[in-house]
Design a protein around this nucleic acid. Structure first.
Lengths: 158, 158
DNA sequence: ATCCAAAACTTGACTTTGTCTAAAATTCAT
DNA sequence: ATGAATTTTAGACAAAGTCAAGTTTTGGAT
């Protein structure tokens, strides 16, 4: 039901006092279709859906949506920013150091991890972001191959 | 004792099988002088110390040092990469959403937080990175000022 | 229904951060 | 001292994102 989906999205936008535009609906739709997508990937999806959109509009929409809490922006090291529509549920991410593959994980603890810090330096802390770094199954395999060929051991993100 | 400092650094480099060069020593020195510095800031410090260095050499040195575990690279969202020489001690960071100010914190728990995840998708996880997001004391103040002037509420990093 | 001010979008140049390549210089084991 | 391998330099290039000015769209008020 894509139509009820976008009706939903339209309401979400109104709820936050944002104008409802084709671009924003398409961006919001793309982010939920492709969790952890980059701005570029989102843009491609959006173009597939509404034909055309400027790069600036994609960035504007992503920025506005993120600023208003409709989506979340994560930015793992050496990777462009990624976006997802799972918000307000305290989940974290596993990111592959090699290919950038990103998966959602929940903490075993369930609650927010380590919200209390020994010293907060007067900061008003509102979020604890956790990224687990490692190698995904596929990259573990190719890492072995690569090492056996005595290749440089340091991969870069795509 | 800057000389014993750099002798130390030279040994560190040798220990990791890296050539000892003036540039690497200066970069290593700059990173310890200015924890959480960006590549640009490091470059300025290095130039102040050894007069001249190419941008590429700064990036090469930072990359090599990070790859070999002599320094750590962190990359908060919407900020360029930052570097520090505190490694192997499992500390985390508080980052100001507004100005990017970064401070070190230890977890109350002491041990690595949330190392166990409910589902690891076959990833070989080797690190849990935690960033606490919030506003530093200075930006809390200016945020109030800004809001009372009904300004756009969304700041950007410097 | 129409109008209008504010919000959003487009376009294209620009900035920042970082990488690639080839040539020159340096390091360090012999 | 010598020479092979590693580093550094210089300058072009690339990716990701931002700025600014002008145009279009939205949605509330007539």
């Amino acid at each position: 039901m894509p139509s009820s989906q976008s009706a939903n999205h339209a309401n979400l936008l109104r709820l936050h006092g944002l104008h409802v535009t084709a671009q924003r609906l398409a961006v919001l739709g793309a982010v939920s279709e492709m969790p952890h997508g980059t701005a570029d990937e989102i843009q491609e999806l959006v173009r597939a859906e509404i034909g055309t959109i400027s790069r600036q509009a994609v960035y504007d929409a992503l920025g506005t949506l993120a600023d208003n809490g409709l989506i979340r922006r994560i930015q793992p090291a050496r990777s462009p920013a990624r976006f997802e529509d799972r918000v307000d549920d305290n989940h974290h991410h596993i990111v592959c150091r090699d290919c950038g593959l990103t998966m959602d994980v929940d903490c075993k603890a369930g609650a927010r991890p380590c919200l209390d810090v020994t010293e907060n330096f007067g900061f008003a802390i509102d979020e604890a972001e956790v990224i687990y770094w490692g190698l995904c199954p596929a990259c573990q395999k190719s890492e072995k191959t690569v090492l056996s060929k005595s290749n440089p051991s340091l991969p870069s993100l795509p």
